[in-house]
């Protein structure tokens, strides 16, 4: 029996969809069977980031309304053999076409066949959020080191604590810019974690490559050496029960100084 985990944030643009895609991929790479569920109905993106957008025939609304069977709508990502599947959102409807019971039914149907069912939640705390949370056993809250994102995360954690999830929500701090934290311009990771008072699942550094690879439909985790990729891989390993130390800002910074020096020498 798998675990259904909703990835949510409240605020838009903090990287929910990117996180869902990359965590799913990282989990699949390390041998778990994963199904990604896109609930951002009307503004679906998860399929695009995974490069699966041109293979959609049926979507979650078709399944919920009985127009298609669940197995027909699931899209298999061929890069990972039988490990990664996507149930795409509908594009020609809005969030209110689904109700929590329908989502719950689909998730319950998926759980026996997968190790992880990752639910990509839309921004906001309205119907879409309620639907996404309905089927979940656990929640991952994504935030960035910005006051607005943290404030929204706080609100969402409050809402999640009211839901009857079997485990307390966990936090991912995304898009961390090392130089800003070192300069003391951005919020500190410890400070955010302490403020939100939930367990920190992991941190992900901001990297231009994340956008580049997403544009190509290849999640960043496929690039092993990228720091953002390492962040996602570490989170996936923690989710699978391993103890992985938190990446330190210093190590990233050192590496970049080193690589900067290297490139400087290369130029000469």
């Amino acid at each position: 029996m798998g675990k259904a985990i909703v990835v949510t944030s409240g605020k838009g643009g903090v990287g929910k969809t990117t996180t869902t895609a990359n965590l799913g991929t990282a989990l699949a790479l390390s041998g778990s069977k994963v199904c990604l569920l896109d609930l951002d109905i009307g503004l679906r993106n998860l399929d695009v980031i995974l490069g699966l957008d041109n293979r959609i025939i049926y979507d979650i609304v078709d399944v919920a309304k009985g127009r298609a069977k669940l197995q027909q709508a699931l899209i298999k990502d061929k890069r990972f053999e039988d490990k990664l599947f996507l149930l795409p959102a509908a594009q020609n409807a809005d969030k209110s076409v689904l109700n929590p019971e329908e989502v719950k039914k689909i998730v319950t149907e998926l759980k026996p066949d997968f190790d992880y069912v990752l639910i990509d939640c839309p921004a906001g705390i309205e119907q879409g959020f309620i639907n996404a949370v309905a089927g979940a056993d656990q929640a991952i809250v994504v935030s960035t080191p910005e006051i607005s994102a943290v404030r929204d995360a706080d609100r969402v954690i409050g809402l999640l604590e009211k839901e009857s999830l079997s485990e307390p929500p966990q936090l991912i701090i995304n898009r961390i810019r090392t130089h800003m934290i070192n300069d003391g311009q951005a919020m500190d990771i410890d400070e955010i974690t302490r403020h939100l008072s939930i367990k920190l699942l992991g941190i992900v550094f901001d990297d231009d490559q994340v956008i580049t690879t997403s544009n190509k439909g290849e999640p960043i985790v496929l690039n092993e050496r990228n720091p953002a990729s390492q962040g996602y891989r570490n989170i996936a390993r923690r989710m699978q029960g391993e103890t992985v130390p938190l990446m330190s800002i210093a190590s990233i910074e050192k590496k970049s100084i080193f690589s900067r020096l290297k490139s400087w020498f290369d130029k000469k």
Partner: peptide
């Protein structure tokens, strides 16, 4: 109780509050 952004904790009577009251709560 932790009172998070958007939450209202209502108490009938006096309260000795030992939790965390977040911004917006």
């Amino acid at each position: 109780n932790t009172i998070r952004n958007g939450q209202v904790e209502y108490i009938q009577g006096d309260v000795l509050y030992v939790g965390d009251l977040h911004q917006g709560g």
